[in-house]
């Protein structure tokens, strides 16, 4: 599970890192989704929404989208209209920089910002059923849309922080989050081809960016590696903005961590 999770994590983090990755980078045109490596039977299984319990979350999210809430008495639909049209491609741009907070926010944080600011409703707890459902609903509208996270001067420090947290070996099991342990691949600056997901196939969205799975993958990699110095939120925290305070921590660079 954790090896699989790490690969999923690799797939998503990689797109964030693609611009900053140096030697051994796979040219964008040659990147392939994991979907391309599946057998026909596995693809058919992945393509069938009825057998995916995650779609129940999407259904529930659609209901929540139209439900009025908070003291403002507004529903998501009151501002954004029909989510199936207005949210197309939106999730692919997240995490995105929030000018007010001066840091990138992920999709859940954006939903919660909408709740607290526009709907005057309490923020939903991370991984709560409602927040997962709404996130799944919004993310579902971006199925098949290539991930398109903006990389500019504002987001670069955060991406660099995420990169710094992603590559160093965590202690006892010598695992990095970049290395898919199930295949025995040692961490290197060459990113594993199979985890590249630039062109998200029917299966690649929203599963590979499922926030819950990514967070669990990070948690499991960090805790398996006994990286006690780092919080269990790992990259997610780094990416969501609390990382700058950690940059002072001495940490091996990605090149020295990949010298096997």
């Amino acid at each position: 599970m954790s090896g699989h999770g790490a690969r999923l994590l690799g797939a998503s983090a990689l797109t964030l890192l693609a611009w900053t990755a140096s030697a051994g980078e796979i040219p964008p045109a040659e990147r392939r989704s994991g979907y391309d490596f599946m057998s026909r039977e596995t693809r058919a299984m992945q393509d069938d929404d009825t057998v995916n319990p995650g779609m129940l979350g999407v259904l529930e999210g659609g209901t929540l989208w139209a439900r009025k809430t908070g003291t403002a008495g507004r529903a998501c639909a009151d501002c954004h209209g029909d989510g199936r049209a207005s949210m197309k491609g939106v999730a692919a741009r997240y995490p995105a920089f929030d000018a007010a907070l001066k840091r990138p926010v992920n999709l859940e944080q954006r939903i919660n910002l909408c709740r607290t600011e526009r709907q005057q409703a309490p923020a939903l707890a991370y991984e709560s059923r409602e927040l997962l459902a709404l996130t799944a609903f919004v993310a579902r509208q971006s199925r098949g849309v290539p991930i398109d996270v903006a990389v500019d001067a504002r987001t670069k420090p955060f991406i660099d922080n995420g990169r710094a947290a992603f590559y160093p070996r965590a202690q006892s099991r010598s695992s990095t989050m970049a290395a898919p342990r199930s295949t025995g691949v040692r961490a290197s600056s060459t990113l594993p081809a199979a985890s590249v997901t630039t062109r998200t196939g029917a299966s690649g969205w929203p599963a590979t960016r499922s926030p819950r799975r990514i967070r669990r993958a990070i948690r499991s990699t960090v805790s398996n590696g006994r990286a006690s110095a780092r919080s269990s939120a790992g990259c997610a925290t780094a990416w969501s903005g609390s990382a700058p305070s950690r940059t002072s921590t001495a940490r091996p660079s990605s090149s020295s961590s990949s010298c096997f």
Binding site: D48, D49, T50, P53, M55, L59
Partner: peptide, 26 residues
């Protein structure tokens, strides 16, 4: 509050055996 997903082929030939899938949140 339960939500259900069902998958029934929209078209079929008479006499054809169709597969029906149902998934409910519970």
């Amino acid at each position: 509050m339960s939500s259900a997903l069902v998958n029934v082929p929209p078209r079929a030939r008479r006499g054809e055996v169709i597969e029906i899938k149902t998934l409910i949140s519970h």
